[in-house]
Every structure is written in structure tokens, then in C-alpha cells.
């Protein structure tokens, strides 16, 4: 208020001029930034001079937000955020003067993507991941320049798109899904990434986790989670795949054996438990006369095989 009172009455033009100056100043700074690219960089406008179609298509890409995002540090250089400094390439127009992630070694291509995407929760298990181990680059699954139906965002938003993409490498798994008893991948109601995190997980086979550290299978089969008063030990200290073949099986319960009796008796075959070999199991009581069909379907009686709250023999 003292400051305002100190303004001469005739200087009423001062506030609007100050206001205008304030309004114009950022613009001036903005303009200055626009014209000042770091050394070696050419800017997106320069890229568009030759690659106009690519840049136009790129405008529909999520990465294009870098072009105007001040906080990410790639303003007006969104192309060069992946392709590296392009001033030399802009002058020479030579392919070897610009970085093409598709033609780089996987590790170098990945480092480019990870420079922004490393700090994402999905990358936590990256090093344990089979994809990282086998040098599968990010660009193997994610394309940046495709738009419309060919874009990664659209392909990976449908179950069929994800399955097709995964099946192109994991052909043996795709073959398992052609067996009669399998998860509903072929019906389009499930997709590979419902169960697996392709970026990595702390579980084997990149199996997703739910409820922090429980296997992802329990997301849909939450009745198997427990805890149970009587646990079946392998359900807790082994992965589900020790008994089940989730991709496809000839067994109606997707077991890894053709009949449930074989599945059970292969473990429950020790007179002493643990056996001298140190493995657990034990033998079922002698009433289990396998010559009668009644006893060959173990889970017909041991129906709470994943764990029971009532019966130590997992009967109810």
C-alpha cells in the first residue's frame, strides 16, 4: 500500500504497462528458448523438413507431448529424445549420422528407452526378466512411429493383439493353447499380459503378482489364496505350475499329467517322509485301491486340494 501511495497520480498508465511487460516477458524468454537449442541438436522443425510424414504421424503419438513439455527437457526436440542429436544428420542427410534404435544393439536401444522409462514400477523386475537376459529390446514389442491400428497402443489394447505379438516369438506356448483344455485366450477374454508382466517380476516366468507378493493366478482364483487351517505344502512352497500346465493340457483340470492319480502318486510315494533322498510326500493309506475307479480320482474326495479349513486330509 505504501508503494501504491508513492506512485504519482498522473502515472496511472504505469500499472497496465507493468502488466503488459510481465505478460510479454515470458513470451520473450520463450522465444529465446525456442531459438536456443543445445549444441548438436537440430530441433523437430528441422526433422520435419525431410521427414514430414513421419513427424505429422508422430503428432498423434503419446511421445509427442515431449515437444511442448518444459519439465521433461525435450521441448522442441521430441524426435531427438530417442534419435539423439541430429544437427550433423540434418547437414549431411546420411543415415549413419543419426541414431536409429531399431538398428542398434538391444542394450543400446534399451538404454535410450530406459533413460525416461527406467523409473517405472513395471521395470522393477527387469534384470530378473528373461527378456532382459535374452537381449530382447524394447523395440521388439513397442513401435513408436506406427499410428492407428498398427500402433502399439491399439495393438496392445486388445487381447488378440497382445496374444498375436507374444505368439510371434513364443510359438511353443502358442501351440499349447491349441490343446482342448486351456485358459480362454482363444476366445479373446484373456491375454498373455493378464498373467505375465513382460517387463519382469520377482516370480519365475514373469508371472505377475497380486496383493503385493502373491502369484498372479490368485487374482482370478482367489478362493485358492487362503490362508487355510490345513495348507497343502506344495501350494505354498512351489509355483502353481508344479501341478498345472496353464497354457494348455490334455487333462480337463490342466494338470501336467493325463490323470490326476498319476499327478498325486508321483509325490506321495515315500514310505518315510522325508525319504532318504530328502523329498517329502508319504504314501496314502492302503484303502486307496487303485484297481477301482472310485479311488483313481483323488480330487473327487480330496476336493480342497489347495488347502482346507476343516479337514486335515483336505476332504472338505
Amino acid at each position: 500500500m505504501v508503494f501504491l501511495r508513492s506512485i504519482p497520480p498522473r502515472a496511472v498508465w504505469l500499472p497496465p504497462v507493468l502488466f503488459l511487460a510481465l505478460a510479454v516477458m515470458p513470451g520473450a524468454v520463450f522465444a529465446q528458448e525456442e531459438s536456443t537449442l543445445p549444441e548438436g541438436y537440430a530441433g523437430t522443425e528441422a526433422c520435419a523438413m525431410c521427414h514430414e510424414d513421419v513427424v505429422e504421424a508422430f503428432k498423434k503419438n503419446r511421445h509427442y507431448q515431449l515437444e511442448s513439455n518444459l519439465k521433461r527437457g525435450w521441448k522442441d526436440r521430441s524426435c531427438e529424445s530417442c534419435h539423439g542429436p541430429g544437427a550433423k544428420h540434418a547437414e549431411s542427410a546420411a543415415a549413419e549420422d543419426i541414431r536409429n534404435p531399431l538398428k542398434l544393439k538391444p542394450v543400446d536401444a534399451d538404454q535410450g528407452c530406459l533413460s525416461c522409462h527406467r523409473n517405472q514400477p513395471t521395470q522393477i523386475g527387469r534384470l530378473q526378466n528373461g527378456h532382459a537376459r535374452s537381449q530382447t529390446a524394447c523395440t521388439s514389442c513397442h513401435n513408436v512411429h506406427k499410428t492407428g491400428a498398427e500402433s502399439t497402443a491399439v495393438i496392445q489394447s486388445t487381447a488378440a493383439g497382445v496374444v498375436k505379438q507374444c505368439a510371434s516369438c513364443h510359438t511353443d506356448v502358442w501351440a499349447s493353447f491349441q490343446k482342448p483344455h486351456r485358459h480362454r485366450i482363444n476366445e479373446g477374454v484373456m491375454k498373455c499380459t493378464d498373467c505375465h508382466n513382460p517387463h519382469g517380476s520377482n516370480l519365475a516366468k514373469n508371472v505377475r503378482t497380486v496383493h503385493a507378493n502373491e502369484p498372479g493366478c490368485l487374482k482370478c482364483h482367489s478362493d485358492k489364496r487362503g490362508p487355510f487351517v490345513y495348507e497343502h505344502a506344495p501350494v505354498r512352497n512351489q509355483p502353481c505350475s508344479v501341478c498345472h500346465e496353464p497354457h494348455g493340457s490334455s487333462n480337463p483340470r490342466m494338470l501336467t499329467r493325463h490323470e490326476v492319480a498319476n499327478q498325486c502318486l508321483e509325490c506321495h510315494a515315500n514310505l518315510l517322509s522325508p525319504s532318504p533322498a530328502g523329498v517329502a510326500g508319504g504314501v496314502p493309506p492302503a484303502i486307496h485301491d487303485l484297481r477301482q475307479p472310485r479311488w483313481r480320482q483323488c480330487t473327487m474326495c480330496h476336493q480342497k486340494i489347495h488347502g482346507s479349513n476343516v479337514s486335515r486330509g483336505l476332504l472338505r
Binding site: 502318486l265 508321483e266 506321495h268 515315500n270
Partner: peptide, 9 residues
């Protein structure tokens, strides 16, 4: 794999 027939061991 080896196993034991439960009723006759």
C-alpha cells in the same frame, strides 16, 4: 518315475 501302489506298497 517310481511310485508305490498305496494298497499293496
Amino acid at each position: 518315475i517310481d511310485y508305490l501302489e498305496p494298497h499293496i506298497l
